[in-house]
């Protein structure tokens, strides 16, 4: 075999790829499903925390800040490992899927809370005062005046952060989730050939290149003129 044939046999082996395609396709579906669940729960809880924080209840805010700092400082893989291998000792066994989902949701919650909060505080005080003095209630002001303005500046950093955390679904492979990476790794050890891993990498590109391009577009679309 020539060098290229050798390379093709190892990395682009169609026979092996075809054999393990169904497994990796299942992994693809699982990755998408996991990612969607993380994004929905993470952003919703992040926004909720930021709104609670805006009421300015001191001890509660300290708690929120601590939780947010905690999940911004801990590596996601450490949280996943802790939840997966640690919680059974507390009588709470989580599946690999649940542990990965919960960990990345907490991480996204922390990052998005910080971004939402920065967005809320960036709205000028005068906006609050003007709305309240025209007779809007606190919640009406929040809903119709502050949140719409805050969203605009939060969208670009939020998009990028969400994309980066969603890619963390690959960490699930460490605790036995058969998402794309997990499925391709087990296919690789069964077939003793790295082509499934190639296929997995391609699957990630198919999934994330459009997402990254979308993030780039959002960034330029919402960019503030300097």
């Amino acid at each position: 075999m020539t060098g290229f044939e050798n390379f093709a046999f190892s990395f682009l082996n169609m026979k092996v790829m075809a054999q393990y395609l169904p497994q990796i396709a299942q992994g693809f579906v699982l990755t998408v499903w996991l990612a969607v669940l993380i994004v929905v729960a993470g952003l919703a809880s992040g926004l909720a925390l930021a709104l609670v924080r805006s009421f300015g209840i001191r001890p509660l805010n300290w708690l929120i800040i601590f939780v947010v700092d905690l999940f911004r400082a801990l590596p996601p893989l450490v949280i996943i490992v802790l939840l997966f291998f640690g919680l059974p000792a507390a009588g709470l066994g989580l599946s690999g899927f649940a542990a990965t989902w919960l960990s990345l949701t907490l991480v996204l919650m922390a990052f998005s809370e910080e971004i939402f909060w920065a967005g809320l505080t960036s709205v000028h005080k005068g906006q609050w005062e003007a709305s309240r003095s025209t007779g809007l209630t606190f919640t009406q002001t929040l809903r119709h005046v502050v949140v719409p303005q805050a969203l605009r500046i939060t969208i670009p950093p939020l998009t990028n952060r969400t994309i980066a955390i969603t890619k963390g679904t690959a960490l699930g492979s460490v605790v036995g989730v058969s998402e794309i990476l997990g499925a391709s790794q087990s296919a690789m050890s069964f077939s003793a050939n790295p082509s499934p891993l190639m296929l997995g990498a391609i699957a990630y590109l198919v999934l994330f290149i459009p997402v990254v391009a979308f993030g780039r577009w959002v960034e330029s679309r919402f960019a503030w003129k300097r």
Partner: peptide, 11 residues
Amino acid sequence: VDLFRAIPPLV
């Protein structure tokens, strides 16, 4: 840049 931002680092 987009290629390596699209591939998860663990992969």
